[in-house]
Design a protein around this nucleic acid. Structure first.
Ligand SMILES: [Mn+2]
Ligand SMILES: [Mn+2]
Ligand SMILES: [Zn+2]
Ligand SMILES: [Zn+2]
Lengths: 155, 155
DNA sequence: AGGTTAAATGAGAACGATTATCATTAGCAT
DNA sequence: ATGCTAATGATAATCGTTCTCATTTAACCT
């Protein structure tokens, strides 16, 4: 999926500051990975997606480093990790606005949504069960009807 | 967690019929695993939970068979597989009523709920995005305040 | 700018959950 | 009971991810 990464290189100084603010040294691998997350066409990337984007740029970064850095970014609040079905985690930049996801089980397309009523009802349900809410993951699996979905149900 | 399995053996003939109806031969491993799923105190069990329950009964069933049978049960619609966080899948008997889950991130307790408003809103959101809904997974992570939660927030 | 040092990296081993392989065993239709 | 086929169990393999450790590097201090 090489073409998915648009190399419109972000401002290196800004990204460096972003890392420092998060308490992380501005190393080359971290800057490159942050750059990819910020400029890729796909908002939700697996560790392998990121690694391949690095390869496509001719960058020499180890796979272990990709995992390490993504985990550090998560701990620092720079990215969110999702466990959609399929065995591998996907990461996206934290943009400060909670949202949930619809995943097309055919083509893998990911759509985001936010529904205040759903959010409110979750709080109500949890409270009624005597829990203190912490986090939640709502993933809807479906078939998209996008014209370019290669597995589209009908024409 | 041996004590979690109540060996009030279910009706073997019934369970045998249940398997046949699902298109599965009534083999000993399958009968035993179905029995454990039906009579365990915990409604949501990992493959390892099931395997340990078998060991506690002195049954000789291979780990690979446990995985295989659980996957077959899922394909046959007898059980549902959930991918809560934590790396391993959990299974529960299909009881014909969709529900979602609250998981205590401290003690692992699992609570079930069903909320019609949430279900309806999901359909609406999905439709508005041009998807055909297929399935969904809503897991709320929280801290339970049950008196017997060993990690309870306060006294 | 050059030196120091603790932290970060990369290659590969290790890991945990799950699946595949394959020789042996066991349902079950005849 | 016999035979055929599917199921089992021991073990190897796989997959995504994390760990180990020798080497490199960013940040700090002359
Ligand atoms: Mn998202
Ligand atoms: Mn349940
Ligand atoms: Zn939400
Ligand atoms: Zn639901």
């Amino acid at each position: 999926m090489a073409w998915l990464y648009r190399p419109r290189r972000g401002d290196a100084a800004l990204e460096s500051t972003e890392l420092k603010k998060a308490g992380l040294k501005a190393t080359l691998p971290r800057l490159k990975i942050l750059d990819i997350l910020e400029n890729s066409n796909q908002r939700h990337m697996s560790a392998e997606d990121v690694y391949k984007a690095l390869l496509d740029l001719g960058e020499e970064v180890g796979f272990a480093t990709v995992y390490r850095v993504l985990t550090q970014f998560e701990a620092a609040g720079l990215v969110i990790r999702h466990n959609f079905e399929g065995g591998h985690a996907v990461f996206e930049l934290e943009r400060g606005h909670h949202h949930d996801h619809i995943v097309c089980v055919q083509c893998g397309r990911v759509e985001e949504f936010y529904d205040q009523i759903i959010e409110d009802r979750q709080r109500a349900v949890v409270a009624s069960k005597g829990y203190e809410i912490n986090d939640h993951a709502l993933v809807i699996y479906g078939n998209c009807t996008k014209i370019d979905c290669p597995y589209r149900s009908r024409g």
